[in-house]
Simulated scan of single mutants.
Amino acid sequence: MKKTLMAGLFALTTAASCVALAMPGMDGDKGRYHERHMERIATELELTTEQQEQLRAVHEEQFEKMKALHDERKEKVDAILTDEQRQKMQQMREEKREKMKKHMEERKERKSDKRDDTRSDAS
């Protein structure tokens, strides 16, 4: 049971770090999201302080490994592409970041609107 729980937590934290890596330029949000996520897991699973520290260490280790893999992939891709193609790829990345940023802002607004509606209904 304990192994299954740890495997599930590992998969969950790995998925969370994938999301975090997919949203560059949103470091503040990433930090807040990660903290809320860790607090929720700690509360729901009734983790001890030691377990929380161990989980954070595993998450940080995996994040660093994923970042290294991401950097390695980028270097390999850049070695294949011409200068013009690299510039175009960079432009495509920036456009994707802007689109993601806009999407996240819209999502945040929708969540805020839903909270406001819920509060109005409760009054």
Rank of each mutant, 00 (worst) to 15 (best):
R110N: 12
D29W: 08
K2S: 15
S17R: 13
S123W: 04
E64N: 03
D27Y: 11
A16P: 06
D121L: 14
Q52G: 15
D71H: 12
M6I: 11
G25H: 02
E46R: 06
K102M: 14
K102V: 10
D29H: 14
A11K: 08
Q62K: 04
L5H: 04
E98D: 04
E46Y: 11
K111N: 11
E64F: 07
D29Y: 08
A11L: 00
D27S: 02
K65C: 12
F63L: 07
E61M: 00
T49I: 07
H103S: 07
G8R: 06
E106C: 08
G31R: 13
E44V: 12
Q52V: 13
E84M: 10
R110D: 05
M1T: 00
R40Q: 04
G8F: 09
D83Q: 10
R107V: 01
M92Q: 10
M1H: 05
E98Q: 02
T82V: 00
E64R: 08
P24F: 07
K102D: 13
A15F: 10
T49M: 11
G25S: 04
L47H: 00
C18I: 01
K3D: 13
E39D: 14
L12G: 13
S17T: 01
K111L: 15
M6Q: 01
E109G: 12
K101S: 15
A16L: 04
E50M: 05
L47F: 08
D83H: 07
M104K: 10
H37L: 09
R56F: 03
Q54I: 02
R56H: 06
V19L: 15
H59K: 14
G28R: 12
D117S: 15
K88S: 08
L47R: 02
M92A: 02
R115I: 02
L5R: 06
